[in-house]
Design a protein around this nucleic acid. Structure first.
Lengths: 188, 188
DNA sequence: TTTCGGGATGTCAGAGTCTGACATCACGCA
DNA sequence: TGCGTGATGTCAGACTCTGACATCCCGAAA
């Protein structure tokens, strides 16, 4: 720690998200974000490569978490799709640690094409990690990819539903409900 | 037409692609693109909302073309996945009209994260159009989405292969080969 | 206790992206 | 001949992002 307030990165990320939700991503300048966080615009760019980066925090830790969840589920006897859903539940738990974030994200992202693209890239990383974990466990590649892709579809639908103000229940509940629906539909 | 050379938009798009392939997207300035096209930087922004937009031409015509291809295939008795593949072949024919474009695109896009995201958005539009066309033809939603998603996967693999200099044969041939492989793998 | 290196931040300058406002020019129609 | 219109040019400016250099304080070493 230095002589400054610690966790500048966290304050910047939080300020970026709150301001973007309040007045729109494109109406929020990096200078404002930095000011709210109590640092300089230049310092912002020492923590994030660009403005959008502040909204999409580092993923690597989450990705290994998901891979572990898949491995555990497989060892417990889950079939591929169930194991992929275990990863999605892990995702829900992860998101619930800080419930405001995903809700605000779901509110901000659709309004800015560039953020939509960035989110798609991030989702592909997740699909890739889950799929790879399944393959590492002996699941055929195609099955693994389909399982991961479908599970991520469940996640997308669940988060969308959960982000609606009218939605009731925890994110985990909604994920479970959505997964059940997906299973029923796919089973037909 | 005015007193200027016609088709400023086309010249701008071409210049953007050629320059980006030559010296990299990020090393190419809008001012350069405009200069090569013989117009002003300001005029560039009258045709494209941003720099990346010049590399991703308007889609709507293509999307209806694909939907039509799906409908025709369905009327000819094709099953959903085959109909989706018909759309991909249409895509191949479309791309072959100007063979240099997709090749250069495949060379430029991976080098710039923002372009990757943009390309994913565009692919989702295609998946959506194909999927919707199938649904309109009575295919259950899940089946339609899976068919469209898988067919687009074939397209991605095929274009990647085709973009490699060592690749031989027409794009359409490669698509057919790739589709056969996908079918064999998925059939196991 | 003093000194000094280093990590985090600030300051400054500048290139590049994108936008708004207004001027200009030639073509076609009245 | 004159005028309206659409495409383009010109100009100014806000914002994003980066490189170079200065500054400051903490902690280790003398």
């Amino acid at each position: 720690m230095g002589r400054w307030e610690p966790n500048a990165r966290g304050r910047l990320a939080r300020a970026a998200l709150v301001l973007s939700a309040e007045k729109g991503y494109e109406n929020t300048t990096v200078a404002e974000i930095a000011a709210v966080a109590g640092v300089t615009e230049r310092t912002f760019y020492r923590y994030f490569v660009d403005k959008a980066d502040a909204l999409f925090p580092d993923n690597t830790q989450l990705l290994t978490l998901l891979a572990t969840a898949v491995g555990d589920a497989r060892r417990a006897g889950d079939r591929p799709f169930d194991a992929a859903l275990a990863a999605v539940r892990q995702l829900a738990g992860y998101a619930s640690q800080e419930p405001e974030r995903p809700r605000l994200m779901a509110q901000v992202i659709p309004t800015v094409p560039a953020l939509v693209g960035r989110d798609l890239v991030r989702q592909r990383q997740i699909v890739g990690a889950v799929s790879r974990a399944l393959v590492d466990d002996g699941v055929p590649t195609i099955d693994a990819q389909l399982a991961a892709e479908t599970a991520l579809g469940v996640w997308r639908v669940a988060v969308t539903e959960w982000a609606r103000e009218s939605a009731v229940g925890s994110l985990l509940d909604i994920v479970n409900t959505t997964a059940a629906v997906a299973r029923a539909v796919a089973g037909a």
